[in-house]
């Protein structure tokens, strides 16, 4: 299967380890991963902030770069959702019929990492080892957007050595919301505080999620409060093995 990695501009810049982890897991499972270098960004920030015309060139670039792959994997639930749900909307608003057709061909092949593993590749045990206490925060876009359900948790449960503990009020939004965190900083921080209290109550060493953007926000708050709790993307836990010196 020709699997292309869509790293996302955010992970590319801030969390390259997550991309490396995706490659590690997929190659461990015997798949070949390609990284089209023409890729940039899905346009989510523009779209969610109201700058739709500015997002359309990014849709065009995405569909061109990723045309022709059997599957496109991305370690971001919100970016996967952006492509699958909203690229068609932008294509329609652009009035370019050809773009609409391209989006219709490419967008359904985009899978969030856990989706690709469980739904497309049919795997839940990826041979990982991670001897730490972990709690999982289902980000809004993975829970209510992509409806990942228990797929990430099934993957985590299959990790050897893991002590997976349930997060109270897990389905509550962490308060990130992209530019919401800037435009409505006080409300965002209030939501963040509640999320951190719930994470701390689990006694976990690591908070795990399928979106590094939410983890940047929650982890940033936890760091400021010196909670000592780390954050890791799901892919990075799944990439860990006995050989790792984590």
């Amino acid at each position: 299967m020709r699997i292309a990695l869509f790293i996302t501009c955010f992970n590319d810049t801030m969390f390259p380890e997550t991309g490396k982890a995706v490659v590690t897991v997929l190659e461990r499972l015997g798949h070949q991963v390609e990284f089209p270098l023409g890729q940039t960004c899905c346009g989510q920030m523009h779209f969610n902030t109201g700058y739709r015309p500015e997002a359309t060139p990014l849709v065009r670039n995405f569909t061109e770069v990723f045309a022709g792959y059997d599957a496109i994997v991305t370690p971001s639930a919100s970016c996967a959702g952006m492509v699958r749900e909203h690229h068609a909307v932008l294509a329609e608003e652009s009035g370019e019929a050809a773009l609409g057709r391209q989006v219709a061909a490419v967008a359904p092949r985009v899978h969030e990492f856990a989706e690709l593993l469980v739904d497309v590749l049919g795997v839940t045990d990826v041979g990982a080892y991670f001897p730490h206490r972990v709690t999982y925060h289902p980000t809004c876009h993975s829970l209510r957007g992509l409806r990942l359900g228990d797929k990430p948790v099934r993957l985590l449960r299959a990790v050897r050595g893991i002590d997976l503990v349930e997060l109270p009020a897990a389905d509550s939004c962490c308060g990130f919301g992209g530019t919401f965190a800037l435009k409505n900083a006080a409300t965002s921080t209030a939501m963040l505080g509640d999320k951190i209290r719930n994470v701390a109550a689990t006694g976990a060493d690591v908070l795990c999620a399928a979106d590094n953007s939410c983890l940047l926000h929650i982890g940033g708050g936890m760091s400021r409060l010196q909670t000592g709790i780390g954050t890791l993307h799901l892919a990075e836990i799944l990439a860990s093995t006995e050989g790792d010196a984590r």
Partner: peptide, 24 residues
């Protein structure tokens, strides 16, 4: 302008090497 973000959150410094650079 980033004050509203950094008031409540630490941010890790961006790594030296992006994923893209690592791949290449």
């Amino acid at each position: 302008p980033l004050r509203s973000w950094t008031d409540a959150r630490d941010t890790p410094a961006p790594p030296r090497e992006t994923f893209r650079s690592w791949w290449r």
